[in-house]
Design a protein around this nucleic acid. Structure first.
Lengths: 229, 229
DNA sequence: ACAAAAAACAGAACACGTTATAAATATTGG
DNA sequence: CCAATATTTATAACGTGTTCTGTTTTTTGT
């Protein structure tokens, strides 16, 4: 198994032989099959037996490679999170506008395929085991850390603001709105305004005086959208 | 169905005979057994078969009376919510202090028996079916509606504040902190400060100028508690 | 090329939530 | 009290996620 160069190592640097390559391939097939099954039949149609059959592996294999059904769904969410790249290149310079635009983009992304993402997010909020912590936390970091840091750097928040705490509060408001959407308590159209309203209120609580007016305007705008129907 | 007075009608006005009384009795036995089982063995030990055996009914009966396992757990949470009476009689006159004290009381209540309430709240956040909407929404109303109304009446919030929206945002911050606790991401000691920090930030965003100082102080106090370890 | 190790495989098995079946029991209105 | 009705009971059954069995295939180091 000498072969040519670049055969025995992955991009990430993890050692890779035929064995690991085969595992990765199977993992890929499983995730792919899971995505298809959820898209076709919703969460209900995704049974481990159907998944194994579709992926062309045995029932035991998904457990060997992922550990549980939930881990597979979370891996799916992780896999799909390519949209982060979208607002990394946003052309908006105002950091506040960037944050609110990011909410729009994220929500639009999820709401575009409700049965699919409802299933995924339901798995995120599933509290019956503890797989979530390992996977979901890393996402939250990536999602909002940079945006909030930019906010602080631009002087939007007052000097005494603890930006780690601020980020946590913002993330929570995002998550609980998603939860309400998953539960069917919040219509898709209300999702973004609802999150942005909360963001505006929280930020007003920590913003320097010169940003108060804009935040008030944003809160009122979101509030109006919510009061529409 | 004339009968003597007080025989054919419940306190709530629902008609009651031997039949309904028997149902109510069985319902009571079932949630009693459920509480015991959760206390003894945690969520894992609460199987429908064990529950039926402990309650002295057949396996089918809990389904006839409640519909699903989840409905039983939520009924349990509903049943236990007697603590509301506790802060109804709070001797604090300042409406802001009342709100923050209510958080302390509620959190203290739940954290006093973690394995038990973790199970209950995990059911609240379970998004796999839609039983929650029917039961949980009513609680939220009772929990925070009055407290926020008092806030508005006392002039804490600015005149233009939509108190319905404000209450929603506050409830979400309560709920997502509880979710983190259930997930094991938030230590019990951080629960109350974490909620109160969010409350303070949100309220600062809508508060009249004369209340800003107090809210800033509360936010800083909660932030300090969180930064301790 | 070959023996050792690792993994996937097919399939049975378990406990679970839930539903359906028919028989037994309790409650009702007259 | 009696016939009609509602509800519980006992039990089997279904599909689920998950674990375990022994066997077979694939990959590895030499």
């Amino acid at each position: 198994m000498v072969e040519v160069l670049g055969q025995a190592a992955d991009v990430a640097g993890a050692p890779v032989g035929r064995r690991e390559a085969g595992k990765a391939e199977r993992r890929r097939r499983i995730i792919h099959a899971a995505r298809e099954l959820i898209r076709e039949t919703g969460n209900a149609g995704l049974s481990m037996r159907a998944l194994a059959a579709r992926a062309g592996v045995s029932l035991a294999t998904p457990y060997n490679l992922f550990g549980s059904k939930r881990a597979i769904i979370l891996a799916l969410l992780d896999d799909v999170r390519a949209f982060q790249a979208r607002f990394a290149g946003l052309e908006v310079t105002d950091p506040l506008a960037r944050l609110f635009a990011a909410v729009d983009i994220a929500v639009e992304f999820y709401v575009a395929d409700p049965p699919f993402y409802r299933t995924l997010w339901a798995a995120v909020f599933d509290a019956s085991d503890d797989v979530r912590t390992q996977i979901y936390s890393s996402e939250r970091d990536a999602f909002s850390h940079q945006l909030v840091a930019e906010l602080a750097q631009a002087g939007v928040t007052s000097a005494s603001t603890d930006i780690a705490l601020l980020r946590r509060v913002l993330d929570r408001n995002f998550a609980s709105a998603m939860l309400e959407w998953v539960m069917g308590e919040l219509p898709a159209d209300d999702l973004a305004p609802s999150i942005q309203y909360a963001y505006a209120l929280v930020l007003k609580g920590v913003a320097a005086p010169e940003w108060q007016a804009e935040l008030t305007a944003r809160a009122e705008a979101s509030g109006r959208q919510l009061a529409k129907p």
